[in-house]
Simulated assay, not measured.
Amino acid sequence: MSDPVGPQAAPLDASVDALSDVLDMIHLRGEALTSVRAAGGTEVRHAPGERALHLVEEGPVELVVDEGTRLRLGRGDMALLATGTAHRLRAVEGDASWMSGRFLVEESAASPLLASLPEVIVLRGAEPGLEWLPLSAGLLAAEIADPSAGSRAMASRLLDLLFIKALRAWSDADGAGGSPGWLTAALDRSLGPALWAIHRHPEQPWTVEELAGLASLSRAAFAARFTRLAGDPPARYLARLRLARAADRIATTTEPVGAIGKALGYESEAAFSRAFAREYGTAPRDWRAARKAPE
């Protein structure tokens, strides 16, 4: 008599998820959720550098980007401005209300990465496939209306969720036609296993042949697709990733510079310091000192 079959656990497949590693690297964190109620004609301005998300509860609301783009948002719509473009929201006809969230990131890592995104990503709440949007908005509204223990943490995680969902929706709709960059490549399904491997083990001396095998592509097809979406050939991408990881560890830990370079695949501290200075314009120790200096 055979033993009864127990429940089968299906673990989350992380091998296609380079995006999570990218978001970890930029230290994305939702912050400062606010609720706005505005009379007709009232404007709320958001300064340059503010990475923001807006959810319209009652509209219409006009979103105006300082570069000139004007968008009308209705009830249930969401706009993500991940690049930090200055903008303003205005109640168009009578009273309007919306929720706004702000995101904090490690700017030195995030600025080049998020630059591949459009200035505004708009999701229309009434579109099919976005059933998660009104549910998330309802949860945020409930936390604002009746805050209690854990509200700040819950709001932060919901904002993170909306940020990621917006990136996925943009990638699916755009068909990977956005500007080349780390984020564009990370959102591409076919490159997922190779990017995941690079991000998990940047210290490894990856070859194009090895990475192409992980992506189930020929060497030529992989190299062409990678360069088109990432904006850099695989070797250059790996070098930049190593240095971005190094910059983060130099700024946030007290590890010796030489140990950081060795852990990320550099044969000597001198080689690491030269590569770091070429990328960031300063030596690793000067980079650390500048970030520890009082503002």
Rank of each mutant, 00 (worst) to 15 (best):
V120Y: 10
R90G: 08
S218A: 07
G101H: 01
V22Y: 00
R278T: 08
R75A: 08
G125N: 12
D174P: 00
L23W: 05
F276L: 01
A275F: 00
P180G: 05
L167P: 03
V64A: 13
A149L: 15
G213C: 10
A39D: 12
L81D: 05
V61M: 03
L19D: 09
A137C: 15
R72W: 11
A109Q: 07
T227D: 09
G265L: 07
V5L: 08
L241I: 15
S190D: 12
L187K: 03
H199C: 11
W196L: 00
E119V: 15
A230K: 12
A141K: 06
L241R: 15
L23F: 06
R225K: 09
Q204N: 02
P202M: 04
G125K: 09
E43W: 02
I26K: 08
A145Y: 05
R219A: 13
I250S: 05
I260A: 07
L23V: 09
F163W: 08
A9N: 02
A212I: 04
E43G: 06
F226C: 09
T69C: 14
A235D: 08
G30D: 03
A212C: 09
A221Y: 09
L73R: 01
R124Q: 14
R70A: 08
L55D: 06
G213D: 14
G213T: 10
A153F: 05
A244N: 04
D146R: 11
E203K: 11
E106D: 06
F276Q: 02
K292A: 10
P128Q: 11
A247E: 11
E50P: 00
P48L: 00
V208K: 03
G192L: 01
R200M: 12
P284C: 09
E43S: 07
R228C: 12
A86S: 15
E31I: 07
F272M: 01
L191P: 00
G125M: 13
E210C: 01
I260Q: 02
R102E: 13
G41D: 05
A145T: 09
S111E: 13
K165E: 11
P48R: 01
R70G: 07
G59R: 04
P11D: 10
I144L: 10
S273C: 14
F222S: 05
L217S: 11
S108D: 14
A223E: 15
P4W: 01
L135Y: 09
G175N: 08
L63A: 08
K165C: 10
R189D: 13
A186G: 12
A14L: 08
V56D: 03
I198A: 15
D21R: 07
